[in-house]
């Protein structure tokens, strides 16, 4: 490992020292391409974030890809209904690794204002591994940018080897998740027990 002070000294002389891991993460973190995939109201704020005023391009994420095959990041922006949940998981499964998920808005986190509804999934983290949650209804575009920066920080800390390596470098970690189907009363499975466990009720 090179000392931080020496590195800075060298950088002043025009010598840049880095590690493969840093370079790799730097590249990955600054070109996170989101899937252009909007579900409800929050998607409009996601769109606003990509427009001139907030300009998500400053963080390297302006390339919204319509195809999951070209996307790195799924922004679940809006209410996931039980009719839509299977397609959301299917889209996630179609994305290549490395891939990340941002749950944007109260609905994607927990069902939000529509939680009591019979057709609303109570949080996408029951079915997908969510990296960042953004509260708000809808979150402001700044909040989305903040989430993106947080995600970049997370990517920076991931090591190429060892226990902290990202999922795509770990052969044992799953990269696809079971797609739920319509059951008699609910989607089946209603949640992925590997990802989400109901909070025990303490009486």
């Amino acid at each position: 490992m090179i000392e931080e002070g020496l590195k800075n000294e060298l950088a002043k002389q025009g010598v840049v020292l880095t590690t493969l891991q840093e370079l790799y993460n730097w590249g990955r973190g600054n070109s996170v391409w989101p899937l252009s995939f909007g579900l409800a109201c929050c998607a409009i704020e996601m769109m606003a974030a990509s427009m001139a005023k907030w300009d998500i391009a400053r963080f390297g994420s302006e390339v919204f890809r319509p195809s999951p095959r070209q996307a790195d990041l799924m922004i679940v922006a809006g209410t996931v209904t039980k009719k839509m949940a299977p397609q959301v998981v299917r889209l996630y499964n179609q994305m290549p690794e490395p891939k990340y998920v941002i749950a944007m808005g109260a609905c994607a986190i927990s069902g939000g204002p529509f939680k009591q509804g019979y057709n609303v999934l109570k949080g996408i983290d029951r079915l997908l591994p969510v990296d960042i949650h953004i509260p708000g209804c809808p979150p402001r575009p700044e909040a989305l940018l903040h989430a993106l920066i947080t995600l970049q920080k997370k990517i920076e800390t991931q090591a190429l080897t060892g226990p902290n390596r990202p999922r795509h470098l770990d052969a044992a970690a799953p990269s696809e998740f079971p797609v739920p189907e319509f059951g008699e009363h609910d989607i089946v499975p209603a949640m992925n027990p590997r990802l989400w466990k109901p909070t025990p009720v303490v009486r």
């Binding site: 209410t79 209904t81 009719k83 839509m84 509804g117 019979y118 057709n119 609303v120």
Partner: peptide
């Protein structure tokens, strides 16, 4: 129906 959020039912309750 992909965004049916039970608006009317919630409003009645």
């Amino acid at each position: 129906g992909y965004l049916h959020r039970n608006h009317e039912k919630i409003a009645e309750n």
